[in-house]
Amino acid sequence: MGRIKTFVLYIIGVVLLVFGNRKIFSELWDAIFPKPTVDYNKDLEDGFSYEDLKYDSAQGRFINQTEYYQIVRYGDDVTEVMKQAKSRTRIESDNAESASDSL
């Protein structure tokens, strides 16, 4: 009887080890069957017109005349201002905002 009890507990332990931690299981699954990379912009871009900014350093100005801001390119081609960005997302409630005479 004692051996059956030990065996049952051993089986439960193995099952919990394998299936209890789903993260290990899903990571293992992803390692075996890696997901193809999806280009999310591909579907979006069809609905918009866009224009890359062209800057002529000799003239010191933008040389293309964009019509409006339909889509904003943001990624590797980022300005210094945006590089300095504090981009950490916080969670807040609707606490009161303080008015100030900033520039």
């Binding site: 201002v81 945006m82 300095q84 960005a85 504090k86 981009s87 950490r88 997302t89 916080r90 969670i91 807040e92 409630s93 609707d94 905002e97 900033s102 520039l103």
Partner: peptide, 20 residues
């Protein structure tokens, strides 16, 4: 109900610009 928001603050136009 407590309204909960995602917030970011970045420096632009010589000011801290917060978006909620």
């Amino acid at each position: 109900k407590i309204p909960v928001y995602l917030t970011q603050e970045r420096r632009c136009f010589y000011a801290n610009i917060k978006v909620k």
